[in-house]
Amino acid sequence: MMMKGAVLDFNRSSGEGLIRGDDGTRYAFSATDFKSEAAPKPGQTVDFEVKDGRATAIYALATKGMTIDMNDAAQRISAFAKEAKVDATAKKVLENLKGGPKDRIGVGLSAAAILCLFLPFLHVPFLGSVSLIETAWGKLLFVIALGLAFLCYQGMDRKWVKVAACAFAAVALINSWAIIADLSSVDNLTNAFMGASRNRRSFLELLAFGFYATLVSTALLMASAFLRKKAHTTQA
Rank of each mutant, 00 (worst) to 15 (best):
L8S: 07
S13M: 10
G15C: 10
G17E: 07
L18W: 05
I19Y: 01
R20P: 02
G21A: 08
G21M: 02
D22V: 05
T25K: 14
Y27A: 00
A28W: 10
A28G: 11
S30Y: 09
S30E: 08
A31G: 13
T32P: 00
T32K: 11
T32C: 07
F34A: 10
K35T: 04
S36F: 02
E37W: 11
E37K: 15
P40D: 14
P42Q: 06
G43D: 08
G43E: 10
Q44P: 08
T45F: 03
V46K: 02
V46R: 05
V50M: 05
K51N: 06
K51Q: 08
K51P: 00
R54E: 08
A55H: 01
T56N: 05
A57D: 11
I58Q: 02
A60Q: 07
L61N: 05
K64F: 09
M66P: 05
I68F: 08
M70K: 15
M70R: 15
D72C: 06
R76L: 05
I77F: 14
A79M: 01
F80S: 05
K82W: 09
K82F: 13
A84K: 15
A84D: 14
K85N: 03
K85S: 03
D87C: 04
A88Y: 02
T89Y: 09
T89N: 09
A90R: 00
K92C: 02
V93F: 05
V93K: 04
L94K: 10
E95N: 11
E95A: 13
L97Q: 03
L97P: 02
K98W: 01
G99H: 09
G100R: 01
P101Q: 06
K102Q: 15
K102G: 13
K102I: 12
D103R: 01
D103P: 01
R104C: 03
I105W: 02
I105F: 04
G108R: 14
G108W: 07
L109C: 00
L109G: 01
S110F: 01
A111K: 09
A112Y: 14
A112W: 14
A113H: 15
I114W: 12
I114F: 14
L115P: 09
C116W: 15
F118S: 09
L119W: 02
L122E: 14
H123E: 06
F126S: 03
L127V: 15
S129L: 07
V130C: 08
L132C: 04
L132Q: 02
W137M: 12
G138E: 03
G138D: 00
G138S: 00
K139Y: 14
K139H: 14
K139I: 15
L140D: 13
L140N: 13
F142A: 12
V143F: 12
V143G: 10
I144N: 07
